[in-house]
Amino acid sequence: MAFLNIQDLKIYYKTIRGDLKAVDGISFTLEEGKNLGLVGESGCGKTTAAKAILRLLPENGRIAGGKIIFRDQDIAQLSYEKMRRLRWNNISMISQSAMNALNPVIRIDKQIIEAIRTHENTTKKETLQRAVELFKLVGLEAKRLKAFPHELSGGMRQRAIIAMALALDPDIIIADEPTTALDVVVQDKILKKILTLQDQFNSSMILITHDISVVAEICDKICIMYAGKVMEFGTTSKVLKDPRHPYTMGLKNAFPSILLEQKELISIPGYPPDLVNPPIGCPFFNRCPFGDEKCKDEQPPREYINDDHWVYCHYADQYQDFREKATQGSTWEAVRKRQQELGVV
């Protein structure tokens, strides 16, 4: 049962040059108690999509179409006041840089208490008690509550943010690159902590990251975005082991791994398209080794591989051939030569 259902969501930013189509018709679902990984390069629209769910878009951004259905209600249409109550209570966010989320001149206990009491009618004493419990859950000593944000290390701050995000027992947590700025040992601990807490609170999570290995470990489903559109969506296991979209195949080749065999890493040549004048057809066309005229002129349809796996590609049926070619450096080299000839450097 889809808990959160994003349908054909469009988010545009107003710029001097016109509308920037940051997100142009994406759809994905999230089940209760499950995790979804939103993966893509910088500028692909994943953070924008997350902000839109919480209606925290900047002034020049707007939801230009589509639905965000949460518990059978289209929250894209909610009033500001109703949305404010939804935020943190039902949907909370862990941002990339904890420094941005914490007020540097207010002690942490005050911040958590304020966040909780804005939404719930509890006494200060009760709230403080809850904060202490939350801190214990994330592995922080209660004495850290009295500190200012800068007195804690990066890892501790991030844990404090997680505690705050969980404070109201939300249904959905949106985590935007929650561990990118952290050391790998701390990252490991925090990710494991997030998983245990999720089990305990039965919350769902949307994890936004460019690191596929983190998604592989903790997300049930993965949604691969590119240039504001979805390329492939499905269970993590299926998408990563049985990729159907050339972009997914390309991403796999670009990822160094500490465990797997030493293979030649291959970059995907070229750059994402300009989102003010996006291409008419498939956005990945000019970086794709397998595209043709049809790909250039027509938007690819959604092809269902099964109930939990779909891809947006005109030639999804040729995936086996594509996959084989995608592992060869020469395939992508040909793309680079083609780009050079077209002068699109």
Binding site: V185, I212, V214, L240
Partner: peptide, 15 residues
């Protein structure tokens, strides 16, 4: 410990 902390992109592998 450092090596064991690195996430792995194969969903079937248990670290």
């Amino acid at each position: 410990a450092l090596i064991a902390s690195v996430p792995v992109s194969d969903p079937d592998v248990k670290r």
